[in-house]
Design a protein around this nucleic acid. Structure first.
Lengths: 226, 226
DNA sequence: CGTAGAATTGAACACTCTCAATTAGCGTGG
DNA sequence: CCACGCTAATTGAGAGTGTTCAATTCTACG
């Protein structure tokens, strides 16, 4: 197991193994409901408005969830990294599309299966609510960023978020390109690049290749993120 | 009762009266749990990060939910109009502040009461999840607007949203000022005003006072909203 | 009616975008 | 292992959309 979070079931209400009815249930049904699937770089996992048949958990790789305007403008709403659950819907359709950013393996569970578990176990229902609420919190924070932060503030916020989510041994290995970052932050790829260069020249961060970043001054970033 | 939606309980799983256990439960507990409260224009209902003790439903008036940056920049995440539920949290604290836009009366229920109802009735739990999912859908749509739409597209989208939510007899009576609209759309109040003037001069809408708007060409607005 | 806040409008500016050219990085194949 | 080639990233210059600051007009209400 590559990361600790991968041992987490898609819906688990307790950390320990086999102590919760929920975990038992998944354990018992594991052969039936949980399977793995892999997608290649840039492959679509599901489209916007597609029926939400499955709920996904990233095992390895990275995923972008996004919406498009008719002329191709794109807004990425979230990046999903190992351990993250995505594609969870309360209704029957996906409201954002999802694509693999790099080669990605996911665990997947039928939505109906979770719904049924939630209908008999209020703890499962509570967990599904909490997961959607967590997505809502992220979206609310991101609305503030998109509506009111400057370019440098957006990039600072992005770096701190990625630092928290994927820094290992002091190094952050970004799976996504500058265009993805721009479409996440409501900027162009050039503006993202310029902001990163500026932070580099200020000594706030260091590069080892364009996507390998070391944060050298998190406090300065926190101050910039407004 | 001024609007039909006001007869809706804060959490109801069925439309009919006294047929659902949930409705019965609220009926039986009504005297204890549901009360009304009024706020004057610009009065705070709760602050960001405050404990989420109550869930609210607008009876009359209008409410803005927002986040602030340290220097005062504001992003309004949603407007709450009669019938709308707001302040519902899966966790224990409010993530946005809420203020009355105009004199407003709300119905309120203790969050703990809803939590307990949800812990024994999976239908209530399902409804709470669906309400949070509805907020998430709105936030996802709004991220696309904030990150990728032009000023005129944002205003067009806003007008169509408000048209859907509060047009009565062909007339839309906006409760909020231009600054509120700007802080909702990620624009300045001047840019909102200019966009409205432009739409007015194009004959897309008519004014009777700055906040009384009649849409004269919804199709053109739909085309503009990208 | 008179007044104060709200809204409109104008002009200049600034931040970000667009378009373009160059450089860097990385996977592939020799 | 190195060279090649392609994509990604950087950097520059100029343009544009939206902001800022300011003045005027409107309009709700007392």
């Amino acid at each position: 197991m590559l990361t600790p979070s991968l041992s987490t079931p898609i819906v688990g209400t307790k950390a320990g193994p086999a102590t919760s009815p929920v975990v038992d249930q998944f354990g018992a049904m594991a052969g039936l409901i949980a399977s793995e699937f892999s997608y290649r770089k840039d492959e679509e996992i599901y489209g916007e408005q597609e029926p939400a048949e499955y709920v996904y958990q990233v095992i390895s790789g990275a995923v972008r969830s996004y919406k498009l305007l008719s002329d191709g403008r794109r807004q990425i709403g979230a990046f999903h990294l190992p351990g993250d659950v995505f594609g969870l819907e309360s209704g029957t359709t996906h409201r954002l599309a999802a694509e693999a950013i790099i080669d990605t393996t996911v665990r997947l569970v039928k939505r109906r299966t979770l719904e049924q578990a939630a209908s008999v176990d209020v703890q499962v229902a509570r967990k599904l609510w909490a997961m959607t609420a967590g997505e809502l919190r992220h979206a609310e924070d991101h609305m503030l960023l998109l509506g009111r932060k400057t370019a440098i503030e957006r990039v600072a916020t992005f770096l701190l978020e990625m630092d928290r989510r994927l820094t290992v041994a002091g190094m952050m290995a970004l799976p996504m390109c500058r265009r993805d970052i721009g479409d996440y932050l409501g900027l162009t790829l050039e503006t993202v690049s310029r902001a990163l260069s500026q932070l580099h020249s200020q000594g706030v961060l260091g590069f080892s290749g364009a996507r390998q970043i070391v944060l050298r001054n998190r406090q300065r970033l926190h101050n910039m993120d407004a």
